[in-house]
């Protein structure tokens, strides 16, 4: 009987041992596999092509043009926008896509006596890089259904109004650098994240940024010379909370609302007013960004 008990006890330990061995080796020896998920019209893999279009003064843009209106629509993918130090460049577009995906549809027209250049671009899926010059005043509407938008506004940026929206879900990143010039930028994301980085010693003029996130997070990083740039943030969160970790800001702060301004806001040379509305999610304000969207080359 004693022997039988010991043998049964041994069988018990053996079962435990088998369990441990199986737990350790099964991920290596017995991998589970699912059918590969592929979207034929998305064509992330396979042969890729790049469509390029340029609008340059005295090449295909008349001398009379002063303003550029951009209308960019993309279903899936990424939009990357930056400004270059090229006064003749109205717009340079490169669209990287799979060969299976239809090419970017573009149009341009000169209106209002040739003063306004209207540029349109419609793409299905891919990576759209937009480079704008510093010799024109820009208006733009950028609509993306799913994906990411990255914009960098530096000393060459000369923007009247940009409207950037992600209709379904994705991420939106906007960086404001030294001597950027813009009047109004409207940013909206239905589901996802929105990051705004203001890292500048000065701006060419005052500007406003309106932010709307239905579900997700809004992160704002501000590192400015407060005597040159007065930054104001008015934010409301319906369901969620706000976190402020910035010594340069003062004002009213509660769990779901804030009205903050940098020290010396009234006396600052230029103002940047940010209004943020967040539905379900959270908002943060800090001096520097602890994390960020991965960036891709242009």
């Amino acid at each position: 009987m004693a022997m039988a008990r010991t043998i049964l006890g041994g069988a018990f330990v053996a079962i435990l041992f088998v369990g441990v061995v199986y737990a350790v080796v099964s991920p290596v020896l017995q991998p589970v596999s699912f059918p590969r998920f592929e979207v034929p019209w998305l064509g992330v893999e396979g042969e890729r092509v790049i469509d390029r279009y340029s609008l340059v003064k005295e090449t295909n843009v008349s001398d009379a043009v002063k303003f550029v209106d951009l209308n960019v629509t993309l279903n899936f993918g990424g939009i990357n926008l930056l400004f270059s130090n090229d006064p003749d460049l109205a717009c340079d577009v490169s669209f990287e896509r799979s060969v299976d995906v239809s090419e970017l549809e573009t149009s341009y027209d000169e209106l209002e006596g040739g003063q306004v250049l209207q540029v349109g671009a419609w793409g299905e899926a891919g990576r759209l890089n937009l480079t704008l010059g510093n010799g024109y005043l820009y208006n733009g509407t950028f609509a993306l259904r799913i994906g990411g938008v990255m914009m960098t506004l530096g000393r060459h940026a000369n923007v009247s109004r940009f409207v950037v929206s992600i209709k379904y879900f994705g991420g939106l990143f906007l960086e404001i650098n030294d001597d950027a010039s813009f009047e109004q930028i409207d940013l909206s994301v239905d589901i996802g994240g929105l990051q705004l980085v203001v890292d500048a010693e000065s701006l060419k003029g005052s500007g406003a940024i309106n932010v709307n996130v239905n579900v997700g997070g809004f992160s704002m990083s501000v590192d400015v010379n407060t005597s040159e740039i007065g930054v104001g943030l008015d934010a409301v969160v319906d369901v969620g909370g706000l976190t402020v970790n910035h010594e340069d800001f003062q004002g009213q702060l509660s769990q779901r609302m804030c009205s903050l301004k940098t020290v010396g806001y009234d006396g600052a040379t230029n103002k940047l007013d940010v209004k943020a509305t967040i539905g379900l999610g959270g908002g943060t304000l800090q001096k520097s960004l602890q994390y960020g969207f991965p960036r891709y080359g242009t």
């Binding site: 199986y22 991920p27 991998p31 589970v32 590969r36 998920f37 998305l42 893999e45």
Partner: peptide, 17 residues
């Protein structure tokens, strides 16, 4: 370990995207 294998399989399946 089974869940881990399923997670790996899903990650592999979605690696296309």
């Amino acid at each position: 370990s089974f869940v881990y294998r399923v997670i790996l399989a899903i990650a592999e399946s979605l690696s296309y995207l």
